[in-house]
Amino acid sequence: MSYPRPSLSDVRIRLEGHDLPGARAGSSALRLANVHVGVQRKAVAELLVPAWAPSATWDLTVDAREVDDLLDVGGPWVHGRPGARFLYLTWGNVVGDTFEMFRRAKLMFGDVPTAVLREAYEGKVLIGSLGLTDAHGDPVCARVRPEWSVG
Rank of each mutant, 00 (worst) to 15 (best):
D68R: 11
F109V: 04
T98R: 01
E100P: 00
L60P: 05
L89F: 04
G137K: 04
E46C: 00
A25C: 07
A53F: 03
A64N: 07
G75C: 13
V62I: 09
V39A: 07
G80E: 09
D68C: 05
K124Y: 13
D63K: 09
A53P: 00
E122C: 02
L132S: 01
G83H: 02
D111E: 14
D69V: 05
A115I: 09
L70M: 02
A120N: 12
V140K: 10
T114R: 11
S27P: 03
G137Q: 04
F99L: 10
S129G: 04
P76N: 12
A105G: 05
T114S: 10
I127M: 01
V39P: 06
K124M: 11
V94S: 07
S55E: 15
L87T: 02
P139V: 02
V37F: 07
W52L: 02
E122H: 06
S129M: 09
L87E: 04
L87W: 07
A25F: 11
L117G: 05
V73A: 06
E119I: 00
A43Y: 11
V67A: 13
A43R: 14
Y88C: 11
V95W: 14
M101D: 11
R65P: 08
V62G: 00
V39K: 06
G128Q: 05
G137N: 06
V49T: 01
F99T: 00
K124N: 07
T61P: 03
G83N: 15
L130G: 03
V62N: 03
A115M: 09
D69S: 07
W77T: 03
H79V: 10
T98A: 12
P82Y: 13
W77E: 02
F99I: 13
W52Y: 11
R41A: 12
V39G: 00
L87P: 00
T98F: 14
N34D: 00
L47A: 12
A84I: 07
A29F: 13
S55V: 04
Y88L: 14
S28V: 12
P21N: 12
K124V: 08
A51Y: 13
D72A: 10
R65V: 08
W91T: 02
